[in-house]
Simulated scan of single mutants.
Amino acid sequence: MITLDQAKVMIDVARKTGREMGLKPLSVVVLDAGGHLLAFEREDGASPGRFEIARGKAYGAVMLGMPGSAQMARAEGQAYFMAAVNGAFGGKVVPVPGGVLVMQGDAVVGAVGVTGDTSENDAAAAVAGIEAAGFAAKA
């Protein structure tokens, strides 16, 4: 289980990492294992639509049990599958890197979604936040 305090650490460190890397303004969301919102922050200068993108990255990761990088590969190889998945989940899945699983041992306990820069940079910021909160990240 991810506590609110741990979710805040994930967000703070992801944002700090983004600033250290010189990234564009980030938006960061943390979801629990059921896909429910625990915390969200949007940096100054980030567009308002970034919440839905960050949530979609994290939501796809937690609901499918696979990080955004694996979802993107699946979408490239089997576009019909990801289209069907997105239909099943009401269009809430954004299958690109930046949706990172939060792991406790072998169990998925949630996901972090980061958006604002390139998908690979978003994922790196998410991993830093997850690890700073004491969890393993699966990007």
Rank of each mutant, 00 (worst) to 15 (best):
N121R: 13
A128M: 11
G56R: 03
L37F: 07
G91F: 10
L31K: 01
V94R: 01
R55V: 12
G90N: 01
N86D: 14
L64E: 07
A125C: 14
S69D: 07
A88P: 00
G90D: 00
E43S: 14
R42M: 06
A7W: 07
V112Q: 05
V85K: 10
G35M: 05
M10D: 03
E52A: 15
Q78R: 14
G34D: 11
G49I: 09
Y59M: 06
A14T: 08
V108T: 12
A33S: 11
I11C: 08
F81E: 06
V28R: 06
A84G: 15
M72Y: 07
A54D: 11
V127N: 02
A84I: 04
R50V: 11
A61Q: 02
M10A: 07
L26K: 08
A128E: 12
T118E: 06
I2G: 04
K16S: 14
A46H: 09
G18E: 13
V109T: 00
G18T: 14
F81D: 06
P97L: 05
H36F: 04
D44C: 01
A70S: 08
G87L: 07
Y80K: 03
L64K: 03
R15N: 14
R15P: 00
G35F: 04
M63N: 10
G110R: 06
D106E: 15
S27K: 09
Q104R: 13
M72R: 15
A73E: 15
G45N: 12
G90A: 03
R15Q: 15
G49D: 11
A136Q: 15
P97K: 10
T118W: 04
V9T: 15
V29I: 15
Q6W: 01
A7V: 06
V93K: 02
L26C: 09
D5M: 00
E41C: 07
D122K: 04
G34C: 03
E41N: 13
K92A: 15
V96Q: 08
